[in-house]
Computed example of a mutant assay.
Amino acid sequence: MTVSPIHTLDISRALHRIKGVLTALIIGAALSGCGVVNNMIYKTTGDVMQGFSRDHTVPYLLESDDLAMGCAMSEATAPLLMSFGRVTSEPDQLAVMLYLSAGGCAEEKAREHELAGLAAMYGLKAVEAEDAMIRQKRAYMLAAKRYHKAWQHHNAFYGEPDSGDCPGFSDDMDEFIYMAGLMSGLQALNAQVQSTASLGVPANIGSIVARATSCLDNEKWWGAPMALRATVWAMIPGALPQGEDAFERLQRADEQGEAAGVRLPHVFHAIAALNQGDDEKVKAVIRDHAEAISDRPADWDWRFVDAMATDMIVAISDRMWVENTGHRTPLGQLGSFWDDQQEEVETMDLDDLL
């Protein structure tokens, strides 16, 4: 039988189409396989990064007293580390530390804007003062959002603190991050108040945190859990249990923090005193802190926490100084104040002895 050239051409075209389809299927399968392999690599990398950050990066940072370095690290690495939640389990526990630290960065800027505004008010520069206060509120909005994210990740990992059940801690770092999450909740609420905006931070966080601190060993954590609880008692009307004295508890927590070389309770004590408008009590806490850091070095494993406490005490001191003098706490004079009485130094006229 004779095959026409046209029929031969049709067969050739059909074979070409089949070859094209097969090629596409093979390439698709290969690419699909690459996607599976890539996902496995990403997941493994994410798991390794989460574990390494939690077990080594965070402890390494806590041994440092360079707050600016910690701030820069959290802001720079948070998007990278959090993105691994797309390919493996959500890094909730690590997120508590990242967003708590990043929130602190934003709050630090808010405090700087506040000082600029207070200095402008002292110098009777109304427009500069108003602009600084606007920038302050914007920075507090960002701080509140970051702190609130830390709080949400804390709850996702440990469970709702208001459930009445305490989580089972696997090690000291696990317990510390739980406490850090509680602090982030209070910070979120405070930053929202300072921003004067409604950002969705629950108003009952304070009472929740106060109850959740009972899951922590107060002696082990430098008196900070009790200081947290007592601060809530002092600041929220009706929160103080019958027979308790919030400031007596805060004083005892201060002593524990001083003895441990982690003076975090001083911060809560000063905040509670500020809330009551008791400037003399605030000054006394600042003086105690200044004396404590000169008497005893920080616990090496928790230098970052102690440095953070000092930074916040300095911020409170600076605010008081700027309000009253127009400038911050003079260098090397933390614990002293503009209205301190200068001791008169008795002098002897040596001419009388000749």
Rank of each mutant, 00 (worst) to 15 (best):
V267G: 01
H266M: 08
A246Q: 01
H266S: 05
G277C: 09
R252W: 05
A246N: 03
R249Y: 02
A253V: 08
E258S: 09
E255K: 14
D245V: 12
L264H: 00
A253I: 09
A270C: 09
A270P: 01
H266A: 07
E244R: 12
E258L: 10
G243P: 02
L250Y: 02
F268Q: 02
D254Y: 00
L274F: 05
A272N: 03
L264E: 10
A272W: 05
G243K: 11
E248F: 09
D245L: 06
V267S: 03
D245M: 11
A246C: 06
G257C: 09
V262I: 15
P265L: 06
Q256N: 10
A270L: 03
R249D: 07
D245G: 00
Q242W: 13
D245R: 00
P265F: 04
E255F: 01
E244L: 11
E244Y: 14
A273E: 06
G261N: 07
I271W: 05
Q276I: 00
A253K: 06
R263I: 02
H266W: 10
G257K: 01
A260F: 09
Q242K: 08
D245C: 11
E244M: 14
A272K: 06
E258C: 07
I271Q: 05
V262T: 11
G257P: 10
A272Q: 02
V267Q: 01
N275Q: 14
D245Y: 08
N275V: 02
H269V: 05
G261Y: 03
Q256S: 12
Q242Y: 14
H269I: 00
A259G: 01
G277M: 08
F247Y: 10
Q276R: 15
D254Q: 12
L264Q: 13
G261K: 02
R252M: 12
D254V: 08
E255Q: 15
A260M: 11
E255M: 14
L250V: 11
E258D: 12
L274C: 13
L274P: 00
L250H: 06
P265V: 10
L264M: 15
G277F: 08
G261F: 02
D254M: 09
E244A: 15
Q256G: 05
A273C: 12
